[in-house]
Nucleic acid binder design. Structure first.
Lengths: 275, 275
DNA sequence: AGGACTATTCCATTGCTGTGAAATAAACGC
DNA sequence: GCGTTTATTTCACAGCAATGGAATAGTCCT
């Protein structure tokens, strides 16, 4: 709600539990409808046709077509392929302007590059959007066979070390709920999906300021993460090293210390940590 | 318009030349008003109070307050300070989703990191938003005294080497217009501001696939840029090395060649260049 | 203290806007 | 060929959203 965290939406998890509330008002304002459309595209992560969007969000065809035309004219949406539409460039501009104003992110990004250089591996800054973890920034490690992903990538919270940290500060109930509703099996089928176990790991990881995940999302790919917490102890983001499985096994402490030092530096630079 | 470029808005430059058109319709739709608000914040690059926004965009107070409340409730806006509002986190999410879908940007980002490692200096990817240059991505160089800026930074087109490249493909008239309306004196008072000269430099720089700027924006800071052009020859973005003045003077060709190689690699990877 | 803004809220009015339904094709599936 | 689904446009209508105006404090000058 009023949490000044970077990403937490705290929607009641837009899952299957569609609220059958709001009985009055068959009609929704333009802004509302527009946001429904943007959200639909955002959550499904792929282009849709106007027709399909109308069906999916349960809006009248005429309204949907009109608003989509409007949004396209304003560059909030763009055409992809023949009939499909997708989020537009203007949203990116707005987003950059927002990110630009976050001294938090620029600070963290700086430390991310330093850490990347220090350990010679890919480093990421991740945040949370509701029940997903989002890659906010990334520094590619050197070498031709580095492990990498992309800015904007969104994965379930239970797939990554960062995902667990990001909910560690939430209340027991909320944490359990998030995992219950969003925990998914990963491609490797090695991700933990038990909500109770996850909730426990999550809390403990935040306390340790360290979370390690091995090959839960992709084979041979691991992740060593440390939380960036504000003064209230809320995990606003994480900084993590992404690297091949065998390296973590061999030099677990080396990476763990490095990433913890980096996250502390960010917190200190922001005045979120006293020393 | 239908240009698939990443950033070009091609608005008629929202400058002082306020179009006294659209006489009918004292009333503007909700989406319209909402976007006016977002745009106002975006273009002024700072938080405003609801009252001030209403005055600035010429909207009724009641409407403005209502819509701003609405947008805040939806995380499209956030509170900054006591009364002021600013762009919200949700816009960043949408923006990331858009960026994530751009294979262009991820491709360019990869090359950006490579180049950063090769030359050991800060490297940026820049695009254009109307009459401004925008920093889309950045890789910090090593060292404690590196030159750096921030993602999302927006500066007039005439201040940077990249800015000139980004309009090099436009028609003579359009280019002249853009420079005429947006060319501003830089802090160092060394930026070129003559539209005709700028337009010429711009075209030539794009032809050379190289643009060099020395201390025009900041003292001792220079920039070596090369364009990333799509198959139509439109400069969609630039990749540039940011570094201290003296280094450019000493090793101009070294940096020029490196940055040109990088931009060509991006174009080739995207199939925008034949070999 | 008084004037001039800033900041916010309330309300009656009205005309724009979202709706629903229907018309029209094109694209499938078979 | 013929139903079914997708895709798009058109239109009259009613309701609510945006509006203008005013009321109410708070704040900043001087």
């Amino acid at each position: 709600m009023s949490t000044p965290s970077v990403l937490s939406d705290d929607d009641p998890v837009p899952g299957t539990a569609a609220a059958s509330e709001t009985p009055r008002r068959t009609r929704v304002s333009g802004i509302d409808r527009a946001l429904q459309i943007l959200d639909h595209l955002y959550h499904t992560e792929k282009p849709w046709t106007a027709y399909a969007i109308a069906k999916a969000i349960g809006a009248p065809l005429s309204t949907t077509y009109a608003i989509i035309d409007d949004l396209i004219a304003r560059d909030l949406l763009t055409h992809r392929g023949d009939k499909e539409v997708w989020l537009g460039p203007r949203l990116y501009h707005y987003g950059l302007a927002y990110a630009h104003s976050l001294d938090f992110l620029s600070r963290a990004t700086h430390e991310m590059h330093e850490l990347c250089r220090e350990v010679g591996e890919t480093v990421q800054i991740c945040g949370r959007d509701g029940d997903r973890m989002v890659v906010l920034a990334m520094a590619d490690g050197p070498g031709h066979f580095r492990v990498t992903s992309e800015i904007g990538t969104r994965v379930p919270l239970n797939w990554t070390a960062s995902g667990r940290l990001l909910v560690g500060h939430l209340g027991e109930d909320e944490r359990l709920n998030l995992f219950r509703q969003s925990a998914k099996m990963s491609p490797t089928e090695r991700a933990e999906t038990d909500p109770v176990l996850l909730a426990g790991l999550s809390r403990q990881a935040l306390k340790d300021r360290l979370s390690i995940q091995i090959s839960e999302t992709d084979f041979l790919v691991s992740c060593v993460a440390s939380p960036i917490c504000n003064r209230l102890g809320e995990c606003v983001a994480t900084i993590s090293i992404v690297l091949p499985e065998h390296k973590v096994v061999e030099k677990r402490d080396y990476y763990g210390d490095a990433v913890r030092r980096a996250s502390e530096k960010v917190e200190r630079a922001l005045g979120w940590r006293d020393p």
